[in-house]
């Protein structure tokens, strides 16, 4: 096959599929409906965690992140990625930094290179402070 035709087919195909996907994809990506959904997603990934061990659940304003504070073992983290979710149990080896950001914001940096740094906004300073304190305790920062 002529390399020009081949290149054109690849580039043209990519553009066409990109346009169709933009039209077909739902806007806004994944959102956590409620605390139960966050817990369910967390337990599905970490079935060894006893559900009675789960304490408070805090969700960010945009409902794309949730923190599930366990009574004994780390902090559960649920994050939307596109229309799916990524789940982690954040312990001492996972967090590089936890910094307050304004009144209700929090900046997180992870050691895991596949988790982008997060700039999160909570509904209240109380929520933010609770999550920040839990994460610092869990990470030993």
């Amino acid at each position: 096959m002529n390399p020009l035709v081949l290149g054109g087919l690849i580039v043209g195909g990519l553009i066409l599929i990109d346009v169709l996907l933009r039209l077909a994809s739902k806007r806004g990506g994944g959102r956590l409906e409620n605390d139960k959904e966050a817990i369910d997603r967390f337990i599905q990934e970490f079935p060894e965690i006893d559900s009675s061990d789960i304490g408070r659940v805090v969700t960010t304003q945009d409902r794309r992140h949730a923190f599930i504070v366990n009574r004994s073992d780390g902090v559960g983290f649920v994050r939307a990625l596109g229309d799916r979710f990524v789940v982690r149990l954040l312990g001492s080896k996972d967090l590089a930094s936890v910094d307050d950001d304004g009144e209700t914001g929090l900046k997180l940096r992870f050691h895991d290179v596949t988790l982008r740094p997060a700039r999160l906004l909570f509904s209240s300073a109380d929520d933010r402070d609770f999550v920040a304190a839990s994460l610092r305790q869990s990470a030993g920062i």
């Binding site: 690849i10 990519l14 599929i17 990109d18 996907l21 933009r22 077909a24 994809s25 596109g82 229309d83 799916r84």
Partner: peptide, 16 residues
């Protein structure tokens, strides 16, 4: 089946 824009484009560009 399901498609998600960013996911699918990531896959296609990995293919390229």
């Amino acid at each position: 089946g399901q498609y998600e824009h960013k996911d699918a484009m990531t896959s296609l560009l990995m293919g390229v």
